[in-house]
Amino acid sequence: MLYALIAGVLFGLYYALIGLGLNLTFGVLRMVNLAHGDFVMIGGFAAVTAFSAWHLHPLWSLVLVAVLIFAVGIALYYVLVPRIAATKDPEMISLVLFFGLSQVIEALAVMRFGNNTQSIYEPVFGKAPVSILGQPFPAVWVVSGLVSLLALLLVYLYLYRTRIGYSTRAVMASREEAEVSGISVHKVSAIAFAIGLGLAAAAGALAPFMLGGITPDLGVGLTITAFAVIVLGSLGNPVGTVAGGLIYGIALMLMQTYLPSWSALLPYLLLLLVLLVKPSGLFGRQVRSA
């Protein structure tokens, strides 16, 4: 029980990291990036490839791929988003568009990497388990948990301690008001969108360990999981995402311990339950009744 709880916290932090980027994007753009999970997948393949080709440590890959995907994100934003925002129904249009993007990424990944599961099997974080409260955990879980925590902290500092972060929160609160008060909404949104993708890719670099391996079709499931996590913690609220991730992680570990054959159902059931019972999330104020 204690083991499952601690493991749940470690995985919860990791899932918060996966969800956080999606939530940032949703917060500023009011769009659900259905290709989010595919950027996690890209990060994963990048780490696996860099390790097998140059023996690059996954933590280095994490930093590199996050920066790289951040740059891609900026470009992608300016190519796609202003166009969608100008349409009649940005919410649905963006959903379909990002879905198309997700299909393209998945197809390219199959062409490049094939359909087999790839992973990093060498114990790059050492063989010795790390002991927490007397319970032994694989070192990589602890490292992933800590890295996720660090990333979450950095995002928190960005949002609450920098000028542009302040603007970002203003855009999250109301795009129109922010525009009127002279904030350059596109710049702020592009950066938030790119950070979102960068975070996804960073999480991806740890995915070979935390998710057991990488396949090109990982994207859709991860996007749903990320969506479940952020809906749990309330959409558009980055702090809530951490709570959502923790709940999800602990619930997952408990399921895997006590009901292993049904644990795969968890993200889907959790998502449906929250959407039907309290769509504003467990920690959210009521959103507009749309």
Partner: peptide, 26 residues
């Protein structure tokens, strides 16, 4: 689910189909 607005519905319906699949194939 139809009480949800567009994007939520789309994703929720996806989750529902996955849930049904995981139940049937369990």
């Amino acid at each position: 689910l139809l009480r949800l607005s567009g994007a939520y519905f789309a994703i929720a319906s996806l989750a529902a189909s996955q849930a049904v699949y995981l139940i049937v194939s369990n």
